[in-house]
């Protein structure tokens, strides 16, 4: 395997951060990796799971492992948008002065984001996409790197508001946090009920994160692979050329172009993590569910048939694979 300094450095840094985070997080390897992929790909991550599964701990651990400014916003139904973005206040000499909200940090933990009202949730929109906040007609850019890690409880729980589609689309990844296994649970109990507390070290700097993001963008992708990825995106559309029968049956809305961008970028990160210098179809398949599961909106029939977004995406992969054949028939 040939050496490529940037790729090697990327993998090493990624592994260092992952190892550090895993010191506090027991199991949940895919979740940890997903969060780090989002970090490397400049994408916001939405973590969904029942309370107490370590979502907040994960994000906190990450911020500790990286020497980045961290802030946590605990969303509640009575929270106002200004509580997130900040507001203009009268300062000395009766001058209006902008007081920054908790959004002004490198890593923002939006805890239980679906407990806030849609109005407050939408306050995050501009920050997540434009990396800036506009208050009182004045635009305030956010510091780089900026990353929103939101957690949410399953929508069925009481006192939650579903996130608007526009906001969901701005999340790069949506990760479903599973229950730990029995062995993992035992480890969790052992770690948290003992006397030894794990201190996390800072293993990567702000610059490292920016460099990681730059390296990711350089990974090449071949046309047939890109075409394969886009075929998967198009296959989620309930109408139009390339639409899959599953999407036609179960989807109200398919993925947006942002979904395609996220898929390719995630593929690039996965390629680097696999030690390759190119994106493969497997990378795209691997990234498909976290990228698209929150971007496709299922219809009533899907609900009636017990179809979830992940199941629909599985079928879409199957559909695209059947069309993707060896160009040389022998």
């Amino acid at each position: 395997m040939p050496e490529q300094p940037d790729a090697t450095w990327f993998c090493e840094t990624f592994e260092r951060v992952r190892s550090e985070v895993q010191k506090t997080i027991v199991g949940q390897h895919d979740i940890v990796e997903g969060v780090l992929v989002g970090l490397a790909a400049s994408g916001n991550v939405l973590l969904e799971g029942m309370p107490g599964l370590g979502k907040t701990l994960l994000v906190r651990s990450l911020s500790k492992a990286l020497s980045l400014q961290f802030s946590r916003i605990q969303f509640t139904p009575d929270m106002m948008p200004a509580d997130v973005t900040g507001t203009n206040v009268l300062g000395e000499g009766r001058l209006s002065e902008f007081r920054r909200g908790p959004i002004f940090a490198n890593i923002v933990l939006a805890d239980e984001i679906n407990r806030a009202t849609p109005k407050t949730q939408s306050a995050m929109l501009e920050a997540m996409q434009e990396r800036s906040v506009t208050v009182g007609g004045k635009r305030h850019p956010l510091d780089e790197p900026f990353l929103v890690m939101a957690t949410q409880n399953p929508i069925e729980q009481e006192g939650t508001y579903p996130l608007p589609e526009a906001q969901l689309d701005r999340f790069f990844y949506k990760l479903i946090v599973p229950y730990p296994s029995k062995a993992e649970l035992a480890e969790v109990v052992a770690r948290t009920t003992g006397t030894v507390e794990q201190d996390l070290e800072t293993v990567a700097s702000r610059e490292d994160v920016i460099r990681m993001r730059a390296i990711v963008r350089e990974v090449p992708i071949a046309h047939p692979v890109l075409d394969y990825g886009l075929s998967m995106i198009v296959a989620t559309h309930p109408e139009g050329e390339g639409s899959s029968p599953t999407a036609q049956r179960y989807c109200r809305y398919g993925s947006s172009p942002r979904g395609a961008q996220s898929l390719i970028t995630a593929g690039k990160v996965h390629a680097l993590l696999a030690g390759r210098f190119n994106v493969s179809k497997e990378d795209l398949k691997r990234a498909l569910k976290p990228v698209l599961r929150h971007r496709i909106l299922l219809n009533f029939e899907a609900e009636a048939d017990g179809m979830t977004a992940d199941k629909v995406l599985d079928e879409i992969i199957g559909f695209v694979d059947t069309k993707d054949r060896d160009p040389i028939k022998v």
Binding site: A222, V225, A274, R276, F277, N278, V279, E282
Partner: peptide, 11 residues
């Protein structure tokens, strides 16, 4: 080969 050849050939 995880699309190595395709990409290398293209580039």
């Amino acid at each position: 080969l995880n699309d190595r050849l395709t990409t290398a050939n293209e580039r």
